[in-house]
């Protein structure tokens, strides 16, 4: 790759040849090795441990994950959804991993996959059977589709509201009271204008249990 153009342009004769390295490739490998070891110290230990120390002091629950309690008992992580299958609770979304927080996963079903579509149809039918007062066009999609993580802790407000009559009926509570509870639990978008409204299913169900015991 010696530049032939050099002869053509006299100006380029002035270019200084780069100072040859005092060490060959072996030298570069050794330099790289030592630099690597130092970088490991810096990025593998110093950086994470400083973030860890900051979390320990300032993050919720010292960086170990936000816990939700009910009657003084830890019943779950606020950010990790859990399975609710009993009719007296608001259901969570379907999960491809059955809310196994030791792993995580979505269905990875494509939009045209016949098996997937049959599964969704089955979930719609099952939901309508458990919630006979709900009309088909009121069933929001999240209640019949699996989340990406399999651990989605939330529903849309509509996802909780369509379950109100069932839950109220099973628990013998006034429908209006349960509906008000859901509305209380709706979390607004970020600063009121960014992103979706949502309801944390675990927190909603904990509040529901409280409402029931207060009665």
């Amino acid at each position: 790759m010696e530049p032939k153009v050099k002869e053509k342009h006299p100006q380029e004769r002035l270019i200084q040849r780069p100072v040859p390295g005092r060490k060959g490739t072996g030298g570069i490998l050794k330099q790289s090795l030592i630099l690597t070891i130092l970088c490991i110290g810096f990025f593998v230990f110093l950086y994470p441990l400083s973030i860890w120390a900051i979390s320990k002091v300032a993050a919720p629950n010292g960086g170990e994950g936000k816990i939700v309690e009910s009657n003084g008992r830890a019943v779950g992580f606020e950010n990790v959804g859990q399975s609710f299958t009993e009719d007296r609770y608001f259901y969570s979304r379907p999960s491809a991993v059955e809310y196994d927080g030791g792993g995580s996963g979505g269905s990875n079903h494509g939009p045209s996959n016949p098996e997937h579509l049959a599964e969704v149809q089955g979930r719609i039918d099952a939901f309508l059977e458990k919630n006979p007062t709900v009309k088909r066009e009121e069933v929001p999609a999240e209640l019949v589709t699996a989340s990406g993580s399999g651990l989605d802790p939330h529903l849309s407000p509509q996802g909780a509201l369509v379950q109100v009559e069932r839950v109220a009926h099973v628990r013998n509570l006034p429908v209006e009271q349960v509906r008000a509870l859901v509305q209380e639990q709706v979390e607004a978008p970020l600063i009121g204008v960014l992103g979706p409204e949502k309801v944390n299913v675990l927190k909603l169900n904990v509040a529901l249990d409280q409402l029931d015991t207060q009665r």
Binding site: N108, P111, S147
Partner: peptide, 20 residues
């Protein structure tokens, strides 16, 4: 294909997505 089943898909395609 899911809209055809007559449910409410106003929030978009939600398979594999998170509600928050």
């Amino acid at each position: 294909a899911i809209s055809n089943m007559g449910i409410d898909q106003r929030l978009g395609s939600l398979e594999g997505k998170e509600m928050r």
